[in-house]
């Protein structure tokens, strides 16, 4: 049981069949061979532009989609479709949209209590209520909110309800799928600080999916950068942020707004040419080569794999 890694994802692939003709279906390669590991109590930030498969990775780990290929291990044990039910107690998810992720016909008490009901984690009604109230206190909601409906709350409060629901089963691993991107900046800060507090108190590990690099750097121990269904760079948060190796990471980081205007002027922005290729018609070799400044002929024929450049900083590029 005592494994170094809590979550191990190996060569995860998720293809969706898309109808392209009357009888023809083409696979959409949303996730194409992703591997990473997360230690207990650690936060892995997963960044990338829209449509690169971040959310799909999160959902495939929790088997909300049946993965096409690859292995997900929890504490060293392989999760399959048949034994997923017991792992649902250990792995939870916080959703992006705090408006559609809460059932408008349920009171807060029932929303947070749902995981307790599903896994029968209480003996009587009083115990159920007690647990719900302690969860609400944990995420900073008042007890009087318990019998209200979700639409009576603001975005930040709703997200807290969603987090309380995820925490109800005492999970060891939570996928935060763009959990703060729908909130405005001041609320983002509150919620992120809460995530950190909860990590310290409960020792949960996060897979923190986001597209805001500053947020990810703040909360993550390690960062993985995704491009078109593949991870192109992984490493310690500061390492990736200060010394990006992959050309895609470089351009992504150069797009981060800098609050100081003088410094911002000095900083050169690396603007990528062209659009993201369609995941239904991926370029051969390295997926990024169509937009890469350093692309050579080798990139068109071979797909680079992640190579360690020291300190666990892995990069998938031939030229850097």
């Amino acid at each position: 049981m005592n494994n170094e890694y809590l979550i191990e994802v190996e060569n995860l692939k998720q293809y969706f069949p898309i109808k392209t003709g009357f009888f023809k279906t083409t696979p959409l390669k949303a996730v194409d061979g992703v591997s990473f590991k997360i230690k207990p109590g650690e936060t892995l930030g997963l960044v990338g532009e829209s449509g690169c498969g971040k959310t799909t990775v999160g959902r495939s780990i929790l088997r909300l989609y049946e993965p096409t290929d690859g292995v997900v291990k929890y504490n060293g044990e392989i999760i399959t479709a048949s034994n997923m039910q017991e792992y649902r107690k250990h792995m939870q998810m916080v959703f992006q949209d705090p408006y559609s992720s809460l059932n408008p016909r349920m009171t807060v008490e029932d929303i947070i209590g749902e995981p307790l009901d599903v896994h029968k984690l209480y003996e009587n009604k009083a115990q159920r209520r007690e647990k719900i109230l302690s969860l609400m206190e944990l995420v900073g909601l008042n007890a009087e909110h318990a019998t209200r409906y979700a639409h009576e709350f603001s975005g930040g409060q709703r997200q807290r309800i969603g987090i309380a629901r995820a925490l109800a089963v005492d999970p060891k691993f939570i996928v935060c799928d763009e959990a703060v991107s729908a909130l405005d900046v001041s609320i983002q800060a509150q919620v992120i600080n809460m995530f950190e507090d909860l990590q310290q108190k409960l020792g949960v590990a996060y897979l923190f999916i986001a597209h805001d690099l500053l947020v990810v750097r703040h909360i993550s121990n390690r960062i993985a950068v995704m491009y078109l269904g593949r991870i192109v760079e992984v490493g310690d948060a500061d390492d990736v942020y200060e010394h990006p190796q992959h050309p895609y990471t470089e351009s992504l980081l150069s797009a981060v707004p800098i609050p100081d205007p003088i410094q911002a002027k000095e900083n050169k922005r690396i603007v990528l040419s062209g659009d993201v290729p369609s995941p239904m018609n991926m370029p051969t070799g390295c997926a990024f080569r169509t937009r890469c400044r350093y692309a050579t002929e080798r990139c068109a024929t071979e797909c680079p794999s992640l190579l360690d450049r020291g300190n666990g900083h892995e990069v998938a590029c031939f030229n850097r």
């Binding site: 909300l64 959703f95 559609s100 992720s101 599903v118 629901r165």
Partner: peptide
């Protein structure tokens, strides 16, 4: 809707999802 997905993520079965989320 995401709340149906959330219910599935907590491990709710089809019957419960229909009864608690879809019908209401």
């Amino acid at each position: 809707n995401d709340y149906v997905l959330a219910a599935r993520a907590t491990g709710a079965k089809s019957g419960r999802i229909i009864r608690k989320h879809i019908i209401p």
